[in-house]
Design a protein around this nucleic acid. Structure first.
Lengths: 228, 228
DNA sequence: TAAAATTCTTAAGAATTTCTTAAGATGCCC
DNA sequence: GGGCATCTTAAGAAATTCTTAAGAATTTTA
């Protein structure tokens, strides 16, 4: 699911993005209405979170414009509770609104609610077998791995290893244990098979494999996925 | 894990309870908001499932009240999809909601999800392999050692020694015994390997290694971690 | 069956830890 | 206090473990 977040305040923009990414959504960012319109034209956007009070009120204009063309759910952010009335008064086609300062969990809830409404039968629900830590999401139902909302393609073995570690984030697994649980073979004939796989996974999920954020080595003991 | 279920419909109350009990949860039952509040006050409740549409809307009031006092995850049951908006609009701190009629499996899934989120976000989990004494904590699951909340990086041998001593805080271990139990080798050829490791550990975990608070020497006999 | 993808092995070289050595400090007992 | 044993500490050599790349073997896909 792709969500466009539009706010001129960089900090808020980042904060919202991180929360959404941690929920497994892919995020597009825009800092004004013009950018937002461009992204909506170019990319596939499933929901928009837009601040109204941006330079020249163009959050409002953008919203109106988008509404003319597409039927994408829009959640408005307004600085004060009073603005709420303004939004309603202006009869803009917002599907929901949130006043700043807002509770991130509430925003997430509303995002889910909107998306649920627009998707036939709940797709991105809080499923049982979705393992998350920071921006890393391992969805065992669809077998899709996501980092900051970006899908990462793993091979079967890579997936199994990462799933094991993410499912037990924080716990350290020895190479032997990883081998036994992923390969389901008792004896463990090592060479350095596991190490090689770990490296490949890092290559795919880490921004900088040299300084991994998620998949860490615990020297002389094993590997783990950080609990974030 | 204890779950409080609150619904004025006895049948639904029973049905939900049975499903939860089959999953191994302990269930408290309440049929109105007042009862719910009492139970929350008296018992240890880890999660609440609450119907909103109870006599006099007191499901809502109860929820608000509980939210004021405690931070227990709450899953709301609402009769119609429209109520969903009401929950959101009223800005109640529900963590999730399910509309009736619901699939019991979905409810269970959400319960697990909430409990996972709650326990994952570092709270009081009953961890078996965490050894503490004073401000020193050895977590054998993540292999993380902490002094007054500050992480201390130990090498594998250092970790094993400290774990052994902390696990048996108060007991004195001779150098031979430490050697045998950490290296798993019977003969013990000493030099002063163990002493060197002990020193390095002290350097890392003690504020003032000259006057160690945790890792002490018992002259001529061995070492121990103080039981505090 | 061939092509493609994945998995496993190998090996060199980095990185880190472990062990040894040895000198100095400290505690214990007469 | 002197003598002896034990502990502390530092530094460097040795050993271990990890990283990484490349290619062979195997499995999957087309």
């Amino acid at each position: 699911m792709n969500i466009l977040v539009c706010d001129d305040d960089k900090e808020i923009l980042e904060a919202i993005s991180i929360y959404l990414q941690n929920e497994g959504y892919h995020v597009f960012k825009a800092s004004n209405g013009k950018e937002a319109l461009e992204i909506v034209d170019e990319k596939e956007v499933h929901l928009i979170i837009m601040d109204i009070m941006m330079p020249e009120m163009d959050g409002l204009r953008a919203t109106l414009k988008i509404r003319e063309e597409k039927n994408i759910p829009i959640i408005m952010l307004s600085a004060k509770a009073e603005d709420t009335d303004k939004i309603l008064g202006l009869n803009i086609g917002a599907d929901d609104y949130v006043t700043k300062p807002f509770n991130p969990l509430e925003l997430i809830a509303r995002v889910k609610s909107q998306l649920r409404r627009y998707t036939t039968l709940g797709s991105l629900e809080t499923k049982e077998n979705v393992f998350k830590t920071g921006g890393l999401v391992v969805d065992d139902e669809s077998k899709i791995v996501t980092v900051d909302g970006e899908e990462v393609k793993l091979t079967p073995v890579q997936y199994k290893i990462l799933k094991l570690l993410t499912q037990n984030a924080g716990r350290v697994f020895s190479i032997e244990e990883i081998y036994e649980r992923v390969w389901q073979e008792a004896p463990f004939n090592p060479e350095n098979t596991v190490a090689v796989h770990i490296r490949k996974i890092r290559e795919k999920i880490e921004i900088n494999p040299k300084e991994p954020k998620y998949l860490k080595v615990v020297w002389g003991i094993g590997y783990k996925v950080e609990k974030l």
